[in-house]
Nucleic acid binder design. Structure first.
Lengths: 123, 123
DNA sequence: GCAACATTAAACCAACTGGTTTACAATTAT
DNA sequence: ATAATTGTAAACCAGTTGGTTTAATGTTGC
């Protein structure tokens, strides 16, 4: 197990799950509120319950959330460590874009443009 | 500009672009080989040129690559800093899953399993 | 037992995806 | 001028997505 193809499959699932703002919002709610049942999760969204149920299924398939069925209520919790593969993938490019931003910052320093947003790096 | 909705839109585009292994492979090639024309990029893939062309368009829409037309050849280069929004989003959850992994690592420390990878945190 | 509740299933829909093939337009080389 | 090269456009296709509405299923409370 843990073949290259399987890892690519995981990345497909995770990135796809993250590509919808409703699903990202669901994750956000689970992160801040902990375990929640689906009716509560669905409440703030302007869409039907089955729609939210489907979104949760997509997140579950990507293992980004897990489900605990307790009687008639399904409780979801975040499984944030499932984001690790995506993070590791991005890691491979982080040096790349930090170099670019660094270059950009250096350029900005030498250039007298006033509306420079102070998005400072620690280094 | 830079509204919440616009940022969500960017995340939608970036995560969607990353959710396909062919597109990730294209990014990988651009990262290792620098600027490349589309015929060269398409060569190792078992699909038609128009298919690769479409994938590059998706990456371009997400601003993950940029295109420079020079005569009849289109040269692509990576725009890795466009990964930053996705990285920032993941950042909001990193502490979460690192806590989990830390707990897992602590557990592993008390458990005689040898193959623990030394991914240390600075803190 | 029965009504209310929590959730999924099923059927449907329009739009999008990832791929194809064939045609076209533009540029370059001979 | 003509042929080869580079790439997109267009038309098409099967499958998926994100949503709906209307059942149906299982649980819980009275």
């Amino acid at each position: 197990m843990s073949t290259v193809a399987a890892k690519e499959e995981r990345l497909d699932l995770v990135f796809h799950a993250l590509s919808d703002r409703t699903r990202r919002a669901l994750m956000h709610r689970l992160a801040s509120e902990g375990t929640s049942k689906i009716t509560d999760l669905a409440e703030p969204f302007a869409m039907s319950l089955p729609a939210v149920s489907k979104h949760l299924r997509v997140l579950e398939d990507a293992r980004l959330v897990s489900r605990a069925v307790d009687g008639r209520v399904h409780r979801f919790r975040l499984v944030p460590e499932s984001l690790a593969p995506a993070d590791v993938w991005l890691d491979g490019y982080r040096s790349f874009w930090e170099d670019t931003l660094e270059a950009l910052a250096n350029y900005a320093e030498r250039t007298p443009v006033p509306n420079k947003r102070g998005k400072r790096k620690s280094s």
